Amino acid sequence: MTLKGLTLVWIAITSWLSIEYLAANGYFRFTGLMLDIQCFLFDSCRRFDPRPGKPVSYFLGWLGFGVMALTNLYIIRKRVHSLQKLGNLQAWLDWHIFFGLMGPTLIVFHCNFKVGGLVAISFWSMVVSFVSGIIGRYFYIQLLQRKTGLRSTLDAFEQGFHNYVRISSRGIGEQDMERAKAIALYQATGGVMGESLRQMGLVEFIFRSFSGDINLMFRLPATPWGGSRPIRKKLRDWAFIKRRLIFMHYYQLLFGYWRTFHTPFAIFMYVVAIIHIVSSLIFKVN
Protein backbone atom coordinates (compact mmCIF):
# COMPACT_ATOMS: atom_id res chain seq x y z
CA MET A 1 0.00 0.00 0.00
CA THR A 2 1.29 3.47 -0.88
CA LEU A 3 1.73 6.30 1.62
CA LYS A 4 -1.39 7.97 0.23
CA GLY A 5 -3.46 4.84 0.93
CA LEU A 6 -1.95 4.45 4.41
CA THR A 7 -2.73 8.10 5.16
CA LEU A 8 -6.36 7.53 4.18
CA VAL A 9 -6.45 4.53 6.55
CA TRP A 10 -5.07 6.73 9.35
CA ILE A 11 -7.70 9.41 8.62
CA ALA A 12 -10.47 6.79 8.66
CA ILE A 13 -9.34 5.26 11.98
CA THR A 14 -8.87 8.71 13.56
CA SER A 15 -12.34 9.78 12.42
CA TRP A 16 -13.88 6.61 13.88
CA LEU A 17 -12.09 7.06 17.21
CA SER A 18 -13.19 10.70 17.33
CA ILE A 19 -16.86 9.75 16.88
CA GLU A 20 -16.61 7.01 19.51
CA TYR A 21 -14.96 9.31 22.04
CA LEU A 22 -17.37 12.15 21.45
CA ALA A 23 -20.13 9.68 22.23
CA ALA A 24 -18.30 8.34 25.29
CA ASN A 25 -17.89 11.88 26.64
CA GLY A 26 -21.60 12.50 26.23
CA TYR A 27 -21.58 14.90 23.28
CA PHE A 28 -24.24 12.82 21.50
CA ARG A 29 -26.07 9.50 21.92
CA PHE A 30 -24.29 6.76 20.02
CA THR A 31 -22.98 3.29 20.81
CA GLY A 32 -20.66 1.80 18.24
CA LEU A 33 -17.85 -0.63 17.66
CA MET A 34 -15.80 0.53 20.66
CA LEU A 35 -18.42 -0.86 23.04
CA ASP A 36 -18.29 -4.24 21.25
CA ILE A 37 -14.50 -4.26 21.60
CA GLN A 38 -14.83 -3.53 25.31
CA CYS A 39 -17.34 -6.37 25.71
CA PHE A 40 -15.00 -8.79 23.94
CA LEU A 41 -11.71 -7.78 25.57
CA PHE A 42 -12.78 -6.88 29.09
CA ASP A 43 -15.98 -8.89 29.52
CA SER A 44 -17.80 -5.68 30.39
CA CYS A 45 -20.64 -4.33 28.26
CA ARG A 46 -21.32 -1.23 30.32
CA ARG A 47 -20.80 2.10 28.59
CA PHE A 48 -17.03 2.45 28.34
CA ASP A 49 -15.19 5.11 30.31
CA PRO A 50 -12.60 7.04 28.25
CA ARG A 51 -10.76 8.45 31.27
CA PRO A 52 -7.08 7.51 31.80
CA GLY A 53 -6.62 4.43 33.95
CA LYS A 54 -9.79 2.74 32.68
CA PRO A 55 -9.69 -0.52 30.64
CA VAL A 56 -10.15 1.06 27.21
CA SER A 57 -7.54 3.70 28.03
CA TYR A 58 -5.06 0.98 29.01
CA PHE A 59 -5.79 -0.93 25.81
CA LEU A 60 -5.22 2.15 23.63
CA GLY A 61 -2.07 2.99 25.57
CA TRP A 62 -0.53 -0.43 25.01
CA LEU A 63 -1.65 -0.42 21.39
CA GLY A 64 -0.27 3.07 20.80
CA PHE A 65 3.08 2.24 22.37
CA GLY A 66 3.29 -0.98 20.35
CA VAL A 67 2.52 0.82 17.10
CA MET A 68 5.14 3.49 17.84
CA ALA A 69 7.67 0.75 18.58
CA LEU A 70 6.99 -0.63 15.09
CA THR A 71 8.43 2.57 13.60
CA ASN A 72 11.84 1.19 14.53
CA LEU A 73 11.46 -1.65 12.02
CA TYR A 74 12.40 0.81 9.26
CA ILE A 75 15.58 1.80 11.11
CA ILE A 76 16.49 -1.86 11.66
CA ARG A 77 15.79 -2.68 8.00
CA LYS A 78 17.98 0.22 6.87
CA ARG A 79 20.94 -0.48 9.17
CA VAL A 80 21.14 -4.27 9.43
CA HIS A 81 23.06 -5.47 6.39
CA SER A 82 21.39 -8.90 6.25
CA LEU A 83 17.93 -7.29 5.97
CA GLN A 84 18.73 -4.76 3.24
CA LYS A 85 17.31 -6.96 0.49
CA LEU A 86 14.06 -7.47 2.39
CA GLY A 87 11.46 -5.43 0.51
CA ASN A 88 11.63 -1.95 -0.98
CA LEU A 89 13.11 0.71 1.32
CA GLN A 90 10.53 3.27 0.18
CA ALA A 91 7.70 0.91 1.22
CA TRP A 92 9.34 0.47 4.62
CA LEU A 93 9.55 4.25 4.96
CA ASP A 94 5.85 4.58 4.09
CA TRP A 95 4.94 2.16 6.89
CA HIS A 96 7.37 3.96 9.22
CA ILE A 97 5.47 7.19 8.57
CA PHE A 98 2.09 5.48 8.99
CA PHE A 99 3.10 3.99 12.35
CA GLY A 100 4.48 7.42 13.29
CA LEU A 101 1.04 8.91 12.60
CA MET A 102 -1.04 6.12 14.13
CA GLY A 103 0.92 5.64 17.36
CA PRO A 104 0.67 9.23 18.64
CA THR A 105 -3.00 9.33 17.60
CA LEU A 106 -3.77 6.30 19.77
CA ILE A 107 -1.79 7.81 22.66
CA VAL A 108 -3.80 11.04 22.42
CA PHE A 109 -7.02 9.02 22.83
CA HIS A 110 -5.36 6.96 25.57
CA CYS A 111 -4.85 10.22 27.50
CA ASN A 112 -8.40 11.36 26.66
CA PHE A 113 -6.80 14.59 25.41
CA LYS A 114 -5.54 15.40 28.92
CA VAL A 115 -1.87 15.21 29.87
CA GLY A 116 -0.05 16.02 33.06
CA GLY A 117 2.81 14.92 35.27
CA LEU A 118 5.33 12.44 33.91
CA VAL A 119 3.21 11.50 30.92
CA ALA A 120 3.24 15.11 29.74
CA ILE A 121 7.02 14.92 29.19
CA SER A 122 6.66 11.82 27.02
CA PHE A 123 3.61 13.26 25.28
CA TRP A 124 5.29 16.50 24.21
CA SER A 125 8.43 14.62 23.20
CA MET A 126 6.14 12.48 21.06
CA VAL A 127 4.52 15.58 19.54
CA VAL A 128 7.92 17.09 18.71
CA SER A 129 9.06 13.78 17.20
CA PHE A 130 5.79 13.52 15.24
CA VAL A 131 5.97 17.07 13.83
CA SER A 132 9.68 16.85 13.06
CA GLY A 133 9.02 13.56 11.26
CA ILE A 134 6.59 15.31 8.91
CA ILE A 135 9.14 18.06 8.27
CA GLY A 136 11.85 15.44 7.74
CA ARG A 137 9.67 13.73 5.16
CA TYR A 138 9.57 17.00 3.22
CA PHE A 139 13.37 17.32 3.22
CA TYR A 140 13.74 13.64 2.31
CA ILE A 141 11.54 14.11 -0.75
CA GLN A 142 13.67 17.06 -1.82
CA LEU A 143 16.80 14.88 -1.64
CA LEU A 144 15.25 11.69 -2.99
CA GLN A 145 16.55 12.34 -6.47
CA ARG A 146 20.20 13.35 -6.62
CA LYS A 147 21.55 15.99 -8.96
CA THR A 148 22.07 13.60 -11.89
CA GLY A 149 18.49 12.36 -11.75
CA LEU A 150 17.13 15.86 -11.32
CA ARG A 151 19.08 17.15 -14.32
CA SER A 152 17.82 14.25 -16.46
CA THR A 153 14.24 15.04 -15.46
CA LEU A 154 14.84 18.73 -16.11
CA ASP A 155 16.24 17.94 -19.57
CA ALA A 156 13.10 15.91 -20.36
CA PHE A 157 10.95 18.90 -19.38
CA GLU A 158 13.09 21.23 -21.50
CA GLN A 159 12.69 18.94 -24.53
CA GLY A 160 8.94 18.85 -23.95
CA PHE A 161 8.79 22.65 -23.83
CA HIS A 162 10.87 22.86 -27.03
CA ASN A 163 8.46 20.47 -28.80
CA TYR A 164 5.48 22.46 -27.50
CA VAL A 165 6.89 25.67 -29.02
CA ARG A 166 7.79 23.93 -32.28
CA ILE A 167 4.34 22.44 -32.95
CA SER A 168 2.32 25.31 -31.49
CA SER A 169 -0.08 26.97 -33.91
CA ARG A 170 -0.32 30.14 -31.81
CA GLY A 171 2.99 31.67 -32.81
CA ILE A 172 4.68 30.99 -29.48
CA GLY A 173 8.43 31.66 -29.56
CA GLU A 174 11.32 30.43 -27.43
CA GLN A 175 11.44 33.83 -25.71
CA ASP A 176 7.81 33.39 -24.63
CA MET A 177 8.63 30.00 -23.15
CA GLU A 178 11.71 31.37 -21.34
CA ARG A 179 9.57 34.13 -19.88
CA ALA A 180 6.95 31.57 -18.76
CA LYS A 181 9.68 29.50 -17.06
CA ALA A 182 11.03 32.61 -15.34
CA ILE A 183 7.53 33.37 -13.99
CA ALA A 184 7.13 29.79 -12.73
CA LEU A 185 10.53 29.81 -11.00
CA TYR A 186 9.79 33.22 -9.50
CA GLN A 187 6.64 31.76 -7.90
CA ALA A 188 8.38 28.57 -6.77
CA THR A 189 11.15 30.50 -5.00
CA GLY A 190 8.77 32.81 -3.19
CA GLY A 191 9.54 35.86 -5.32
CA VAL A 192 13.34 35.71 -5.68
CA MET A 193 15.35 35.71 -8.92
CA GLY A 194 18.94 35.84 -10.20
CA GLU A 195 21.95 35.76 -7.88
CA SER A 196 19.72 36.39 -4.87
CA LEU A 197 18.69 32.72 -5.09
CA ARG A 198 22.17 31.58 -4.11
CA GLN A 199 22.92 34.37 -1.66
CA MET A 200 19.97 34.11 0.73
CA GLY A 201 20.42 32.85 4.29
CA LEU A 202 19.05 29.62 5.70
CA VAL A 203 16.02 31.19 7.43
CA GLU A 204 15.07 33.12 4.30
CA PHE A 205 15.46 29.93 2.25
CA ILE A 206 13.00 28.06 4.50
CA PHE A 207 10.50 30.91 4.33
CA ARG A 208 10.82 31.27 0.54
CA SER A 209 10.51 27.51 -0.08
CA PHE A 210 7.31 27.11 1.93
CA SER A 211 5.93 30.33 0.48
CA GLY A 212 6.60 29.02 -3.04
CA ASP A 213 4.96 25.66 -2.27
CA ILE A 214 1.81 27.32 -0.94
CA ASN A 215 1.76 29.79 -3.84
CA LEU A 216 1.88 27.08 -6.53
CA MET A 217 -0.48 24.82 -4.60
CA PHE A 218 -3.33 27.27 -5.19
CA ARG A 219 -2.20 29.10 -8.34
CA LEU A 220 -0.54 27.60 -11.39
CA PRO A 221 2.10 29.73 -13.16
CA ALA A 222 0.78 32.21 -15.71
CA THR A 223 2.03 32.17 -19.32
CA PRO A 224 2.37 35.17 -21.67
CA TRP A 225 0.12 33.44 -24.21
CA GLY A 226 -2.55 32.23 -21.77
CA GLY A 227 -1.53 28.56 -21.90
CA SER A 228 -3.77 25.61 -21.05
CA ARG A 229 -3.79 23.93 -17.64
CA PRO A 230 -1.58 20.94 -18.69
CA ILE A 231 1.30 23.15 -19.87
CA ARG A 232 1.01 25.32 -16.76
CA LYS A 233 1.19 22.20 -14.56
CA LYS A 234 4.34 21.13 -16.41
CA LEU A 235 5.83 24.58 -15.83
CA ARG A 236 5.03 24.25 -12.12
CA ASP A 237 6.71 20.82 -11.93
CA TRP A 238 9.70 22.15 -13.86
CA ALA A 239 9.99 25.06 -11.42
CA PHE A 240 9.97 22.74 -8.40
CA ILE A 241 12.78 20.63 -9.87
CA LYS A 242 14.77 23.69 -10.89
CA ARG A 243 14.40 25.13 -7.40
CA ARG A 244 15.45 21.83 -5.87
CA LEU A 245 18.65 21.85 -7.91
CA ILE A 246 19.43 25.43 -6.94
CA PHE A 247 18.66 24.80 -3.26
CA MET A 248 20.17 21.29 -3.02
CA HIS A 249 22.90 22.34 -0.56
CA TYR A 250 20.28 23.89 1.74
CA TYR A 251 18.22 20.68 1.79
CA GLN A 252 21.32 18.60 2.56
CA LEU A 253 22.20 20.96 5.41
CA LEU A 254 18.66 20.93 6.85
CA PHE A 255 18.32 17.16 6.53
CA GLY A 256 21.48 16.81 8.63
CA TYR A 257 20.08 19.22 11.23
CA TRP A 258 16.78 17.34 11.20
CA ARG A 259 18.42 14.00 11.98
CA THR A 260 20.32 15.58 14.87
CA PHE A 261 17.06 17.05 16.21
CA HIS A 262 14.59 14.20 15.53
CA THR A 263 16.50 11.22 16.90
CA PRO A 264 17.16 12.45 20.50
CA PHE A 265 13.50 13.41 20.96
CA ALA A 266 12.37 10.00 19.69
CA ILE A 267 14.76 8.22 22.11
CA PHE A 268 13.72 10.47 25.01
CA MET A 269 10.06 9.77 24.20
CA TYR A 270 10.61 6.00 24.48
CA VAL A 271 12.61 6.30 27.70
CA VAL A 272 9.97 8.41 29.47
CA ALA A 273 7.15 6.25 28.06
CA ILE A 274 8.77 3.12 29.51
CA ILE A 275 9.19 4.87 32.89
CA HIS A 276 5.50 5.85 32.71
CA ILE A 277 4.47 2.27 31.91
CA VAL A 278 6.61 0.76 34.69
CA SER A 279 5.39 3.28 37.28
CA SER A 280 1.77 2.66 36.22
CA LEU A 281 2.16 -1.10 36.61
CA ILE A 282 4.03 -0.97 39.92
CA PHE A 283 2.50 2.02 41.69
CA LYS A 284 -0.84 2.15 39.85
CA VAL A 285 -0.10 5.76 38.79
CA ASN A 286 -2.22 6.91 35.83
Rank of each mutant, 00 (worst) to 15 (best):
R208G: 02
R198M: 04
I267E: 04
H81W: 02
F42Y: 13
R229D: 11
F283N: 13
G26M: 13
S279D: 15
G256Y: 05
L235C: 03
L150G: 03
G160Y: 08
D213T: 02
T263A: 14
G66M: 08
N215C: 11
G136A: 02
M68R: 01
N286Y: 14
F59H: 04
Q142R: 14
A180D: 11
L89G: 09
G103P: 02
R198P: 04
L197G: 05
P50G: 08
Y138L: 12
E195P: 06
V108K: 10
G136Q: 09
G117H: 00
K242Q: 14
G136D: 11
S125C: 15
I214G: 02
L83C: 04
M102D: 08
F28I: 04
T2H: 07
T2Q: 06
K54W: 04
K181Q: 12
L154W: 00
A273H: 00
R243Y: 03
I183V: 15
G116V: 09
T105Y: 03
R259H: 15
Y140T: 14
N72F: 10
T153D: 12
Q252V: 12
T260H: 02
W92S: 08
R46Q: 13
R77T: 10
S279K: 14
H276Q: 00
K233Y: 03
R151K: 13
D213W: 06
L197D: 10
W238Y: 15
G227I: 05
F30K: 07
F99Q: 03
I11G: 05
R198H: 11
Q142P: 10
L22I: 09
F255L: 06
I37D: 04
L245A: 01
W16G: 01
F40Q: 11
L197E: 10
S129Y: 08
S211Y: 05
V203C: 06
T148H: 08
P221R: 09
I134M: 14
W225F: 07
G212M: 04
W95P: 02
P221S: 02
S152N: 10
L154H: 10
K234T: 00
P52R: 13
L245F: 00
S209H: 07
V108R: 12
K114F: 11
R51F: 05
D213Q: 11
Q145Y: 03
G117R: 05
I141G: 09
P230M: 06
K54G: 02
P55D: 08
R77Y: 00
F205I: 04
I231Y: 07
Q187G: 05
C45E: 09
T223H: 00
F261K: 00
V285P: 06
R151S: 10
M200H: 06
I167Q: 14
S169G: 08
D43K: 14
S44I: 07
I37P: 00
V131K: 06
L202Q: 11
I172T: 02
I167S: 15
L254S: 01
H249L: 05
Y164V: 01
W238C: 09
L118E: 11
H276I: 01
S132Y: 05
Q90A: 12
Q90I: 12
G26P: 05
W124N: 10
